[in-house]
Design a protein around this nucleic acid. Structure first.
Lengths: 185, 185
DNA sequence: GACGGGGAGTCAACATTGTTGACCGAACTT
DNA sequence: AAGTTCGGTCAACAATGTTGACTCCCCGTC
């Protein structure tokens, strides 16, 4: 009654087709009819399953990154680990991040981006820090991280894109480290 | 023939109405009919004057910032000046920046954002720097700047928004300074 | 075993979007 | 005075997201 095999298959076909298309083309350039065609079904069915294009977007576009390299890194190497993590980041994460940023004209997508920034970038760093200004330092490091992804992916700075990755990791690692660890401590 | 008073008035009415609406609502949420209504004219006329909604957007959304505080600042205070400039930034610049970022799903808008990043953020800093890695340092500072605006405006980090502005200027000023001036120089 | 109900699927329609073409009118040129 | 050019108006077009009516099939109940 709740699922007879074919039903969830269709729903999941829509889900995965939407995920792929949204990652590749963003929110506005992806049409419900495209999603339906890619899933081999009908546009009306897409809406029936997910209420609206925007809700389907929110249900498919979840940004997560692998925390582990940060959690078990010694504090004095946290900066470099974070830089490595970000510079090597790619694949679905790139598409989801871009879709969230570029779709944030829609209020609900904007809220999702705000949440993502808080829970994916700020929170993991905040947990490793202490001291009265720990919160500001975590938020600044998150702003640095967002700035790196912004420069590489959103603005598309070709100079940075051409820069040697190990140099980028080293430079940004030092930056992160300086922000995360207390002044000259 | 080229302008008989009323013609440029209408064209400029469209231009300024579009600028205001695009800044407030972004590209996708602003409709040609809205612009026409705000300018007291017809949707078809909007297209006739500017060829397309996207070209109208590109003609109205130019991001510029006042360079002077950077040009005449002594090198050792460049970082703080830049931080001041960014933290105090607001008004049209905010709307234009957000519209460019969120509209960058459209290839031409993306290209405009790329150009803006290159000419508004990177170039002025690059001119003040020298040394073999001057280019990378300028691009990293620009990425930091983009990250600050990203965190404040795009992601909407409420923690940073609540942070005392002078503290933000001081912290980011030091960051900029460390990136702009050569290692331990 | 027949029957009814509910949910998946299909089709056509709706309002809204950006854009185009046909027509109108006035003003400037010759 | 005639004609051309250009701004303005109106209606229409295709494409978009979304909704409603209808069909069909599977399940549980008499």
């Amino acid at each position: 009654m709740l699922q007879t095999g074919s039903r969830t298959t269709t729903r999941e076909a829509i889900h995965s087709a939407a995920a792929r298309l949204f990652q590749d083309q963003g929110f506005s350039r992806t049409t419900v009819r495209q999603i339906a065609a890619a899933a081999g079904t009908d546009p009306a069915l897409v809406i029936r399953h997910f209420k609206s294009k925007e809700l389907l977007f929110l249900e498919t576009m979840h940004l997560t990154i692998d925390d582990e390299p940060l959690l078990d890194a010694p504090l004095e190497h946290l900066g470099e680990r974070l830089a490595e993590l970000l510079v090597e980041l790619d694949g679905p994460a790139r598409g989801v991040f871009l879709a969230l940023v570029r779709g944030s004209n829609e209020p609900q997508i904007h809220e999702r981006l705000r949440d993502t920034h808080e829970h994916v970038f700020i929170a993991p760093l905040r947990r490793r820090l202490s001291g009265p200004d720990a919160d500001v330092r975590a938020r600044m490091a998150a702003a640095l991280a967002g700035g790196l992804l912004y420069a590489l992916w959103v603005a598309g700075d070709e100079g940075l894109l051409r820069t040697d990755r190990t140099e980028l990791v080293s430079r940004y690692g030092a930056l992160f480290q300086g922000v995360l660890t207390p002044r000259s401590g």
